[in-house]
């Protein structure tokens, strides 16, 4: 039962519950008209404590396409937060007005606190470098659509694996599916945190490999998941400039890749995928953004229990 639940991290839902959401998304993709009024008279609050155009638009368009309405703020300076209001008080107040809330916050664990004080479902739309579960749902739905299922897949994650929360969430989520194999491609400075290795990969017996270049892993992969090296995750500019161009995907690097491999990216990209890749039939990152909206529609509808 998903009605009334929160989504704070990808493991909050069982594999079966995720499948329920994906089946709803399948239905929406097939016949969007059928779902265009299911959230009539429902209100979504978007609490964005740090800027994010894409995720916010994705949630807002999802709610609007379900026939619901949206309120919220897109930067904390324009809200009561600027006056020093706590997360607990903000969510308790918002819960008086809205039926469901989405929160992005620069501090890790902020949406979890909100969920502890909220009477309405809270969805984590990204907390610092920690979790981004709806991106994970997006990734899973995209993989499921283009690869047919979520089992027996070799996934390469490339770029900023240290601070890249989308990668952490994706690895956690994929570790629950049979015969997942993870290839981690990153520079030494941006390697995956120990806790993902120790408590997800090792504990769950997931086969994993570490690579320094895209080329050495590419021929094996069913999915290549690229990430951006984010300026805001660095404490100093020099480190950012030194590392930002390290892993750029171009046609040459995937010369020996499988023909049915898919290339994903949570977007926005800076320069980590060359524009020449956009024409490659394996590039699925823009379709992935669309899947993001569908899966958020499915999530909102299920958490509100309107289906």
């Amino acid at each position: 039962m998903l009605k009334g639940r929160h989504l704070i991290e990808p493991m909050d839902f069982t594999v079966e519950e995720l499948e329920t959401i994906f089946k709803t998304a399948d239905g929406i993709i097939e016949n969007p008209e059928k779902y265009s009024e299911v959230c009539k008279n429902k209100l979504l609050a978007t609490l964005f404590y740090e800027p994010s155009t894409r995720t916010r638009f994705s949630f807002e368009s999802a709610m609007l396409r379900l026939g619901g309405k949206v309120i919220g703020f897109s930067e904390p300076n324009s809200s009561s937060v600027a006056k020093g209001e706590s997360i607990a008080d903000t969510i308790r107040t918002i819960a008086c007005y809205a039926d469901i809330a989405v929160m992005r916050h620069p501090k890790e664990g902020a949406p979890y606190i909100a969920s502890q004080y909220s009477d309405i479902p809270v969805i984590n739309a990204g907390d610092g470098g920690h979790q981004h579960p709806t991106q994970t749902l997006t990734d899973l739905l995209t993989i499921r659509k283009y690869k047919g299922n979520l089992k027996n897949l070799k996934i390469g994650v490339c770029g900023d694996l240290k601070f890249g929360r989308t990668v952490h969430s994706l690895i956690k989520a994929m570790s629950r599916y049979e015969n997942t194999e993870i290839y981690m491609i990153s520079p030494e400075e941006l390697k995956i945190p120990d806790y993902i290795k120790e408590e997800v990969l090792i504990k769950k017996g997931v086969k994993y490999h570490e690579a320094k270049t895209i080329e050495e892993a590419a021929p094996e992969l069913d999915i290549l998941y690229m990430t951006r090296v984010q300026r805001e995750r660095f404490f100093n500019e020099e480190d950012y400039i030194r590392l930002k161009d390290t892993y750029i995907l171009n046609k040459e690097k995937i010369k020996y890749s499988k023909k049915d491999m898919i290339i994903l990216h949570p977007l926005p990209r800076v320069n980590e995928i060359a524009y020449e890749i956009d024409d490659d039939p394996r590039a699925c990152y823009f379709q992935q953004a669309k899947m993001g909206m569908y899966v958020r529609m499915a999530l909102i509808a299920n958490l509100l229990g309107v289906l």
Binding site: A88, P106, K107, E108, G109, A110, I113, H130
Partner: peptide
């Protein structure tokens, strides 16, 4: 000890 942890700003939790 994580400076990015929410407990660094929300002192009531």
């Amino acid at each position: 000890k994580n400076p990015r942890c929410v407990t660094s700003i929300e002192k009531y939790v």
